[in-house]
């Protein structure tokens, strides 16, 4: 008995030192720090070089004197306008698709095919979306609309409408997956309670399921906006312009200013791209490039922050239902 005991606790008071433990401990910590370091490096560089360019004039004026002076206001306006149009198209479509997948589709073949399509869509390179936008929206849909409606050259050319539509297809998987997750977190017992009170399926989805999922849906929407706002390739051929002398605004009925979806537009990420690659003296435009990048990143961060605040707000508001 005594021997067995001493054997069992042999080494209890001796600290062991194992190389594999120490090494793995160090490595996982080190690798975990790399993303933080990368982000910190990028942010520091952009802030250091870009903050000097940020002035009131830079944020509110149009570029002038061969893009070397003035500001980037048309780009900020274009970015906001196109992401607004994009989300107006993508959100209803994506939410509807997710509702179909979670509430109607069952788990059969069609469900698996749509699932696979959504996942593959998320993996398509963004330049392919750009080409798809030209081929499908402008040349196919647009030209045919022009021919049918006899509108001349209205739909069949690059413009904000098609650029936004292209971006909408790009962010569709983000919205679908986020919405699906949000819908799946609503317990089945909630649906059962509503159905048992004589609610129809749609009444149950509209009154019980969607309100409880809206935090997650909004989070997905905002994340997709911040994804779409930073994309360049999809809008490259579908509607953005190097330089426009005026904002893409039309006066509805002659006096209500409205975004004109048939105009071309300037955009932040595209502005950075042309400044870096197309200008006569790329080095001279460096401060503008950094300034524009800082604005774009700040905009994206702001959107992500909004998403987080939304999530916190909705979680607090009604409490979460446990399964």
């Amino acid at each position: 008995m005594k021997n067995a005991l001493s054997l069992k606790f042999h080494g209890l008071t001796k600290r062991s030192f194992r190389w594999d433990e120490v090494l793995s401990d160090f490595l996982v910590r080190f690798f975990a720090l790399i993303p933080i370091a990368a982000l910190a490096f990028i942010m520091m560089k952009i802030i250091a070089k870009g903050s000097g360019a940020i002035t009131w004039e830079f944020l509110t004026q149009a570029p002038s004197q061969g893009m070397m002076h003035g500001g980037i206001f048309p780009c900020i306006f274009g970015t906001l306008a196109i992401t607004l149009l994009m989300i107006l198209m993508a959100l209803p479509l994506g939410v509807a698709a997710a509702i179909y997948l979670t509430e109607y589709a069952g788990k059969g073949l069609l469900f698996r095919v749509i699932r696979a399509a959504v996942n593959n869509l998320a993996g398509v390179p963004s330049i392919v979306f750009g080409l798809f936008g030209v081929g499908f929206f402008i040349l196919f849909v647009g030209r045919n609309l022009d021919a049918v409606l006899k509108t001349g050259m209205l739909f069949g050319q690059p413009c904000m409408l098609w650029a936004a539509a292209t971006l909408a297809v790009l962010v569709l998987p983000v919205i679908i997956v986020a919405t699906e997750e949000a819908l799946n977190t609503v317990p089945q017992s909630q649906r059962a309670a509503s159905l048992a009170l004589g609610a129809t399926k749609w009444q149950t989805i509209w009154n019980i399921v969607l309100p409880q999922a809206r935090g997650g849906i909004l989070t997905g929407a905002i994340l997709s906006i911040s994804r779409g706002a930073g994309e360049t390739a999809p809008i490259l051929f579908t509607g953005c312009a190097y330089f426009l002398p005026r904002l893409p605004v039309v006066n509805l009925f002659g006096f209500i200013p409205m975004i004109n979806p048939f105009d071309q537009f300037m955009e932040l990420s595209y502005h950075i791209f042309i400044m870096a690659t197309q200008s006569l003296d790329a080095v001279k435009t460096l401060p503008i490039q950094y300034g524009t990048t800082l604005v774009l990143i700040s905009l994206t961060f702001l959107l992500n922050l909004t998403a987080i605040l939304f999530r916190v707000h909705f979680r607090k508001k009604m409490g979460t239902v446990t399964v």
Partner: peptide, 14 residues
């Protein structure tokens, strides 16, 4: 609506 149901686990709406 005519045949109401009460479930095993209470399930009030939030």
């Amino acid at each position: 609506r005519m045949v109401g149901m009460v479930f095993q686990k209470q399930n009030p709406f939030p």
